[in-house]
Design a protein around this nucleic acid. Sequence first.
DNA 1: ATGAAAGCGCTAACAA
DNA 2: TTGTTAGCGCTTTCAT
Lengths: 348, 348
Amino acid sequence: MAETTRTEPRYGNRPTMKEVAARAGVGLKTVSRVVNGEPGVTAGTERRVREAIDALGFRRNDSARVLRKGRTATVGLVLEDLADPFYGQLGRAVEEVARAHGTLLINGSSAADPGREQELALTLCARRVDGLIVIPAGDDHRYLEPEIRAGVATVFADRPAGFIDADAVLSDGFGGAREGVAHLIAHGHRRIGFVGDRPRIHTAAERLRGYRAAMADAGLPVDGRWVASGPTDPARVAAAIAGMLSAPEPVTALFAGNNRVTVTAVRVLAGRTAGGRGPTVALVGFDEVELGDVLGVTVVAQDPAALGRTAAERLFRRLGGAAEPPRRVVIGTRLLARGSGEVPPPPA
Amino acid sequence: MAETTRTEPRYGNRPTMKEVAARAGVGLKTVSRVVNGEPGVTAGTERRVREAIDALGFRRNDSARVLRKGRTATVGLVLEDLADPFYGQLGRAVEEVARAHGTLLINGSSAADPGREQELALTLCARRVDGLIVIPAGDDHRYLEPEIRAGVATVFADRPAGFIDADAVLSDGFGGAREGVAHLIAHGHRRIGFVGDRPRIHTAAERLRGYRAAMADAGLPVDGRWVASGPTDPARVAAAIAGMLSAPEPVTALFAGNNRVTVTAVRVLAGRTAGGRGPTVALVGFDEVELGDVLGVTVVAQDPAALGRTAAERLFRRLGGAAEPPRRVVIGTRLLARGSGEVPPPPA
DNA sequence: ATGAAAGCGCTAACAA
DNA sequence: TTGTTAGCGCTTTCAT
């Protein structure tokens, strides 16, 4: 045989352009032209090439194309959990914008683990995504500096980047929480509990800040036992709520710092009412929950799709060459009064 | 200059292994060894290489690697809608299995459009995914034959493939629907409505078949006006339900063919009860809805995570070389009685 | 309108 | 232990 080295790859046994060219009796470049719809091929030649393509089941190898062209037409999205409807909606919105730009989206879950966030983001960079949208799990993003310098457009969503200056698209957690808590105060509550995520999470901290601001605005004190910040697994949340409600001076209303907490709070409060024990407790949740309208759950709604869409549009503006300084975009929230937040406190 | 051709790519301005090698004063292959953790490099050499890597901000270009190695360590997942919690959970389960196999998952939404399903699946093949999990939107998958022949392992999930013989992992829609409807019959209902998706969707057809089987088992007739198969947007579903309930001989119970229908049905029925008009209507839904437990919605629950996990495991078994004939795996459902399905019909 | 040659950044094979 | 060479499948450049 003629070859000196015979290395094995070949992806199963996929035909290459070279083979298509041989079969069609044309040059390699002509096949390339046909495959990419470039001009300069006569109808007859094109037909012969297409026949060879179909006969061989040829499909262009995009890895080789990418290697040569330098652009992958791919963007990455690092989110927290694909199974969470909030991120699902956000991701879907990003996907649609990417699609409109002829770009493939690769998304992956960090599972709220900073190490996984970094691993995933860097894996995507190794695959040479043109751009990256990150929903931070960690709070230090300096690891992305070399990538950004090398030209990977990067936008942060839902939470800002840590220790680097970059675009960010956020919900108004402070304003939303403040409005939600003020709503409870307006309905007569004075002892209001806050149950939210770990305070090192930016969104959680902002919402807690909004809670404190609303209380301060009304001249109300905040008892330390009314604030429960930590992991939002059902067990911990249920215990925290139970504690606040069984204290000598129990809270008469709850502000839930995210949708996981709201769901658990609804369950706990439903159980209390069903059992007939204790008075009805008012509830306002941050972020929407499915069927919240039917259940009458008052919430401060975010717009996850707007968050994703805005972040993606910003990313593609950058990819298009926009060189403005990094900006922070804040997306407003909406208070949806549905019943649970309008329950007055029991008469003293 | 020495070069004859100077082509431009270079991905922004990323250093290559060659440049790292030059800076570290070693050969290209030595850098490759360090980057890939291969043996045969002294500690001192390795240190110098690592310094060069850090100084230059080098990151291996996986496109080039893939081109050479022939395996991408990537699998694709074509699902219907990332924002739907059912698919979100399924996707997340696939992601975890892929991760455990050191593989990246690329998922994308078909938006229930067969054309988009095909476009997305073939795009993933062009990127040379090693394997593919498809949740069909269309019902003809012959377009995948060349890909499968070329070695792309393919598994279908939630719905079977059309016109090709391939692995499939499905929920027991027939058995689940039959059980759910039998449950309503056991509670005294004789006129039961079915609201589901378009019958050309395999899952929808199976569930409708289960409904008919349960009715037949009990010797009950099925009035054509009790069956509404079509798109499950809220408007159409609400209209269908309203029609069934306002007929001269109205249905006394509803079986909802998917979670979208269940949500709309809950809304419609809640509205009726709130208005005080008409009797309470029993409801059993196929597939879980969030907060369904709190709302007391009786459902036939699927296990989307099990579906995803099982499909992914099957895919990786194939990638590992398993050559068994294609198999269909059916995952059972569970009836969760929570109240709405145990309401008796009004006295005649 | 068509094709030959070079090379994208990496890894496999082989030599030193 | 380390380096050199060839080539993965494609696009770019330039010649015909």
